[in-house]
Write a protein that binds this DNA or RNA. Structure first.
Lengths: 218, 218
DNA sequence: TAACATCGGACTGTTAGCAGTCGCCCACTG
DNA sequence: CAGTGGGCGACTGCTAACAGTCCGATGTTA
């Protein structure tokens, strides 16, 4: 039987996942400001879910570093300072540099490179759109870089840093963040990978991240 | 009032934390073998806690990569293959190399170096003890390295990898694992940091991790 | 015998509610 | 007025139970 793509499976996300996504968005968008105490009963009523389900989502957010637990289990939205942003981008830098190195050394990397170029093109298109879309396409590029490395552990580590990255962007303000969205810089990364020069690819990423952190905090 | 050390605070760990620790140990010790399906009702009865509390712990283990969720929320103990071990150690390598680089560039690192040397000494003492203690002191050295970098994000990323590292050791078998416990190799790391040569420190760590992975899977 | 319907059993998703603890306010007391 | 102690509200820790879903076994029919 011929099936349309729209019939290939309905997405029934669990309430926990929905809550997780909603809270992540609320935090990284600043709707829940840093330092704010998260009261379980309050949140569960807002989201219209039970506390038990909510608590599971909170646990995950805690692991992602978006919220931190204080005394007696009281959760609050994490507050980033300048040093922490630098630290986050330093870790992000070594992770993505590993991805770039891995891709550089990959024997047949044409398919991967094509996908990366598509991601850059996507940033190009988004450059004329809203700031939010530019941020999304930028993060999408970097996530793709990690995914294409084929190292699941690497991808997972990066993704559990993604929330912190988004908070850093939020903290710095959107104008500063857009300094890092230059399409050209990302072309350089792809080019470095293309040459197969792993050391060069690594340096390009590290430099990119260092300057990205400086752009955000400077 | 003069208080004795034993009165400085009782440790009341939540059931969730206890369950987390117990499950982590059970998995990394092989008591719960890879691939095994974890039935919530079964585990909660074993641990004598409710499913709600257990589920929170499972969520955390999932994030740590010790268990993975299959269809319809069914959790099972993660199964590592050779490639995944290499991937884990590659990520671990870049994380620890960042720690080593950071320490190398630190202006007054004497206190940190002293602590690292103490960790190496501890490995030395443990060399005559049980395999388990050797593994613990080895991991403790590397955790200390990350902690002393002062980069909380780095430490957190490393710690969320720790479970996977322990599984790798388990997977490889204890004999192979002890190949990586050489005290001399760890002296080299400290020495590289001491010279302040960040590039050298980085290379030493990366080489250490590459050979560690090969020792485990070869 | 092959396709189909039905019925339990096994588990997970989710919820409401009880229990314990901490912080705060206020009265009391020497 | 410093210090003590009792009540009260707020909030988290934990639990038991309900509801829904999937899977396999068993029967059923053409």
């Amino acid at each position: 039987m011929a099936v349309t793509a729209s019939l290939l499976g309905l997405e029934k996300k669990s309430l926990r996942e929905q809550a997780l996504a909603a809270l992540r968005t609320a935090i990284t968008s600043g709707e829940l400001e840093p330092g704010r105490h998260l009261v379980e009963t309050e949140l569960s009523e807002m989201l219209q879910i039970s506390r038990g389900t909510l608590r599971e989502a909170l646990r995950q957010l805690e692991q992602e570093g978006l919220i931190s637990a204080g005394a007696r289990g009281r959760m609050s939205v994490r507050h980033l300072d300048v040093k922490e942003i630098r630290d986050i981008f330093a870790v992000r830098g070594v992770l993505e540099s590993l991805a770039a190195r891995t891709l550089s050394d990959m024997p047949d990397k044409e398919a991967a490179l094509a996908e990366l170029r598509a991601a850059v093109d996507n940033m190009d298109k988004a450059a004329k759109s809203s700031l939010q879309e530019r941020i999304e396409s930028d993060l999408e590029f970097h996530r793709t870089l990690c995914r294409l490395s084929g190292n699941e552990t690497l991808l997972h580590s990066w993704e559990s840093l993604e929330g912190s990255i988004r908070m850093s962007i939020m903290f710095a303000g959107l104008e500063r963040a857009t300094r890092n969205m230059s399409v050209g810089r990302h072309h350089d990364i792809v080019a470095a990978i293309e040459t197969g020069n792993a050391a060069k690819a690594r340096e390009t990423i590290i430099a990119h991240m260092d300057s990205a952190a400086e752009n955000l905090v400077g």
